[in-house]
Simulated scan of single mutants.
Amino acid sequence: MGVQRPTRASSAGVRKSMQGNKSRDTKPELALRRAVYALGLRYRVSTRPLPKVRRTADLVFTKAKVAVFMDGCFWHGCPEHHTKSATNAAYWADKVERNRERDAETDRLLGDAGWTVIRVWEHEDTTEAAARIARTVHQRRSP
């Protein structure tokens, strides 16, 4: 992958805003967890599917080997909703590109290890996403 550059906020306000961004337990993630739980599924939260690989999935179904990632539209470059930053545009474009590359690498690493990866955009309908997750988990659990 590319060279890691130090994170530099363009202002104190931007730095404070970035520090306030949660890496887990966001509103869309909590809504998805509630919907999946309501379907009777139990899962691990914010767990590494492969302990030796530094990638944390939002929901992990260990026996079925299903890892679910809730991707934010801005951070992961949603084709429908991603907006380009007006401030420090080159930095943010590079950051999103690195995130996309890491997502693709994560999908490949987990796939190679026999896992199924489900990616859910934060804007997706929670009920539909939960149903998709449930179908996949049930299929993977069936002989």
Rank of each mutant, 00 (worst) to 15 (best):
G77M: 05
A86Q: 09
I118K: 06
D107S: 10
M70N: 11
E80H: 11
T83M: 14
L109F: 09
V68F: 02
L110E: 05
K84C: 10
E122N: 00
T106S: 13
W75C: 03
G111F: 07
F74V: 06
R108K: 15
E97R: 15
K95I: 01
E122S: 03
V96M: 08
V96H: 10
R102H: 13
F69S: 01
V120M: 08
V96L: 10
F69M: 04
A113W: 09
H82W: 13
W92F: 07
R108S: 15
T116Y: 10
E80W: 14
D107G: 03
A86C: 04
A104G: 06
E122C: 01
T106D: 15
P79M: 13
Y91K: 01
T106A: 13
A89L: 01
T83F: 11
E105Y: 07
C78M: 06
N88G: 04
I118A: 08
R98G: 13
G77W: 04
D103I: 05
M70Y: 09
L109K: 12
R100S: 11
M70H: 10
D103G: 06
Y91W: 13
F74W: 08
S85R: 12
L109S: 04
D107P: 01
N88A: 11
R108L: 15
E97N: 14
K84S: 15
G77V: 02
E105A: 11
D71K: 07
A90Q: 14
T83R: 15
V120R: 03
K95W: 00
Y91C: 03
L110G: 01
H81G: 02
Y91Q: 02
V68I: 05
C73L: 03
R102I: 04
G72T: 04
L110Y: 07
H76P: 03
H76N: 06
A93S: 10
C78I: 02
L110F: 10
E122L: 02
A67N: 06
A89T: 11
S85C: 11
W75K: 00
W121G: 01
E97H: 15
E122R: 00
H81L: 03
H81K: 04
D103P: 06
F69L: 05
E80R: 13
K84I: 14
G114T: 09
E101K: 13
D71W: 07
D107M: 05
D107A: 12
H76R: 05
G114F: 05
V68H: 02
H76F: 08
W92D: 07
N88P: 03
